[in-house]
């Protein structure tokens, strides 16, 4: 791997399908993204440790058969668990979008260890889930989001950002109230659905019925982020659904900042 580069691994497997636009976003922010099939990691042709940022992009891995993200979650947990643990233990970054978020939640990577006890054991089971939207169907629509928390990924975002969601299983449900309280207390909630002014949303502003309007969460370090909405689909200004009504404001859209943040963090802390 090249020294001095921000190396991003975008993990692919059967049914991954937002890999190329995620790679484009990182590339535009000056990183070196590489699309890697999980087989290449399993066969040790590619080493996870050579990268700074691990991305699990959107898609329908293994068809979302049984339930969304489950099969890849198990594969990561059981076949790449050690490498993954070391990767995160090294203070590196991880980003899961849409199906990638579902995978991370179901693998227990998010919300991750919630207190010191769990941290010591490096063992966090699944503490939340993402289930069928209340509407009972797949929906592609744009949602307003309020970034909250202190993740490295969300620094400097505007007060309300506008990203599309495109999913059938995006309703965030924590295991119980204790988990929800810890998520709030630890500042692990990263994005909440909101109305256009940042206020309390109703359907379809909260597009899936998520508990506490949660759209994305981080681990306790803030270095691992997962979210249902697609920031890579609002990377360019012309991806905005009504850009023809707006004054052009540079080439980039609301999501670009997230990718910039990740790349800058690596430059400042990991290179």
């Amino acid at each position: 791997m090249n020294q001095g580069n921000v190396n991003v691994i975008i993990l692919r497997t059967a049914g991954t399908n937002c890999d190329r636009e995620a790679a484009f976003a990182f590339e535009r922010c000056g990183a070196r993204p590489r699309l890697v099939h999980i087989n290449q990691l399993l066969r040790k042709e590619v080493q996870l440790r050579d990268f700074h940022i691990l991305v699990i992009p959107g898609g329908f891995t293994y068809g979302d058969d049984i339930e969304s993200g489950r099969i890849l979650a198990n594969e990561l947990r059981l076949r790449l668990g050690e490498e993954l643990c070391r990767f995160l233990g090294d203070g590196k970054l991880m980003l899961g979008i849409c199906n990638g978020f579902q995978v991370m939640v179901k693998a227990g990577i998010l919300p991750g260890p919630l207190d010191e006890g769990e941290q010591k054991q490096h063992a966090a089971g699944q503490r939340a889930t993402l289930i069928n939207n209340d509407s009972g169907k797949f929906e592609d629509r744009w949602c307003h989001l309020r970034p909250v928390g202190k993740s490295v990924w969300t620094q400097g975002l505007r007060e309300v950002v506008y990203f599309p969601v495109a999913h059938a299983e995006g309703k965030f449900v924590p295991q119980d109230d204790t988990v929800l309280d810890l998520l709030r207390k630890n500042g692990q909630v990263a994005f909440r659905y909101c109305d256009p002014r940042g206020g309390k949303p109703v359907y379809p502003e909260n597009p899936n019925g998520s508990t506490d309007d949660i759209a994305g969460i981080t681990d306790t370090t803030g270095r691992v982020l997962g979210l249902m909405p697609h920031p890579e689909r609002h990377f360019l200004f012309t991806q905005h659904p009504f850009w023809t009504r707006l004054k052009p404001n540079g080439r980039f859209g609301h999501g670009a900042k997230i990718f910039e943040n990740g790349v800058r963090y690596v430059r400042e802390h990991l290179l």
């Binding site: 190329r20 929906e139 592609d140 599309p164 495109a166 890579e232 689909r233 991806q239």
Partner: peptide
């Protein structure tokens, strides 16, 4: 709405 009309990130003018 049930179709993903934005995957691949290429959309400039969307169906809506």
């Amino acid at each position: 709405r049930q179709y993903d009309h934005e995957v691949q990130g290429a959309s400039v003018i969307k169906p809506f």
